[in-house]
Amino acid sequence: METVAVIDYGMGNLHSVAKALEHSAPANTRIVVTPDPDVVRHADRVLLPGVGAIRDCMAEVKRLGVDELVKEVVQHRPLMGICVGMQLLLEHSEENDGVDCIGLLPGKVKFFGKELQDSNGERLKVPHMGWSQVHQHPHQLWQDIPQDSRFYFVHSYHVHSDEQLVAGECEYGVGFHAALARDNIFTTQFHPEKSATVGLQLLANFLRWKP
């Protein structure tokens, strides 16, 4: 029996991600959505989700000690961060006039800007909402997912980290890092739980990942 903890720090609905994990998980896996640090500490794998404004997310993360908990967990357990759950792991975000984040991974979270254009000079809407191709860098979690598959994104801020951590790249007016990986950590800006077959495959790969 394996336990997967989805960290509930009070921001947004975790139903979808929990259900997608259940759908992708082997039969002997238990998915728990929990704010309890002890449950998270004893889980075999941990997922850090997140939606909404980063200032509010980070405030709850600090209040509940999720920042320290996450740093502890990644020493010996696989951790996946999704969307704002990815952004939180970086050092700093421009959102809400600037917010310091957990700082587990190097890099910054930047605004797309109001004057975003594609390579043909067409204006691009913000948020970046919909299905974009992700160019994969070699990593076990991409197994059985075709190169350049499309995943579902919804975000107005994007991540820039160190080149050697990049597991997936995307472009929307500017190039940005759609997935980062280091040791036990794998994070995505897109929502695998909303990305149909390829997203479920990524979650299934995470659930059997042995870093």
């Binding site: 594609d118 691009l124 970046h128 919909g130 299905w131 974009s132 191709q133 160019h135 350049d148 499309r150 995307c170 472009e171 929307y172």
Partner: peptide, 8 residues
């Protein structure tokens, strides 16, 4: 590598 238009 752009954003796909959506059908809903």
């Amino acid at each position: 590598m752009g954003l796909a238009k959506r059908i809903i």
